[in-house]
């Protein structure tokens, strides 16, 4: 199959649908991969890295969109609607429930649209939404720590404290992927108050030891 990887066009979107490692696997399986020039630059991948694993770099978005299957990160924007055509297989985040115009375009133009966010395992989990929730959960701790700095307008506490000085208190709301990954962020003695819908322990290292409406402490990581 011919697979197209256009450069993302949404403002400040620097992700790309396929890494050079992914291209290698697709090429080894016998497929042809067309990568729009510069598509990987925002994520740290050069055209040369894609060429080295067998991709073909194409100069225009239209060239990548001409493929049988187009893989992306974000939903097509209005400027990209012209590339939507009957028989195209589009695999990307779509979030159609919040995009009526795009929904009509995909239907009228007879595109087969497979949305990352609705791919669902039999246990109800969403395997293509989970990785971004994992990122957001970890980032939430990081940005929370950053904005607690006095120089950033915050309260002036170091999130983890230092020996002899209490760390900041952290309250986590929810019990999903974002919340559970935040618990992996451990610091010595850091306090964690965690409210979640069901008082079930999560099978994670360094987890909060408290149950719903109680609080626990992050466990010291094994050294």
């Amino acid at each position: 199959m011919i697979i197209g990887v256009p450069k993302e066009t949404k403002d400040r979107e620097n992700r790309v649908a396929v890494t050079p490692g992914g291209v290698r696997e697709l090429v080894e399986a016998g497929h042809q991969v067309l990568v729009e020039t510069g598509a990987g630059v925002g994520s740290g991948f050069t055209n040369q890295q894609y060429v080295a694993v067998g991709a073909q770099i194409v100069p225009e978005a239209a060239d990548a969109w001409a493929a049988e299957m187009v893989v992306k990160v974000k939903e097509p924007l209005p400027a990209e609607y012209e590339y939507l055509r009957a028989g195209l297989l589009l695999f990307t985040y779509l979030h159609l429930a919040a995009a009526e115009d795009l929904t009509h375009e995909l239907l009228q133009r007879e595109v087969t649209g497979i949305a990352y966010e609705t791919v669902e395992l039999s246990n109800g989990t969403l395997p293509l939404l989970t990785p971004m929730s994992e990122v957001a959960g970890r980032m939430a701790v990081q940005v929370g720590a950053y904005y607690m700095m006095k120089t950033n307008g915050g309260i002036g506490k170091l999130i983890g404290g230092v020996p002899g000085v209490l760390p900041a208190s952290v309250l986590i709301l929810g019990g999903g992927v974002v919340a559970s990954t935040r618990q992996r962020w451990r610091w010595d003695g850091g306090q964690c108050h965690h409210l979640r819908p069901r008082p079930r322990p999560l099978a994670l290292p360094g987890r909060c030891t408290g149950r719903a409406h109680q609080y626990g402490q992050f466990q010291r990581p094994p050294h």
């Binding site: 400040r12 979107e13 620097n14 992700r15 790309v16 649908a17 396929v18 890494t19 490692g21 992914g22 990987g40 925002g42 994520s43 740290g44 991948f45 990160v73 990352y116 293509l128 990785p131 971004m132 994992e134 990122v135 957001a136 980032m139 939430a140 940005v143």
Partner: peptide, 14 residues
Amino acid sequence: MPGAVPNTSTRALN
């Protein structure tokens, strides 16, 4: 939020 760390996010997504 993941858009701020594309080097990680792209790999995690793919």
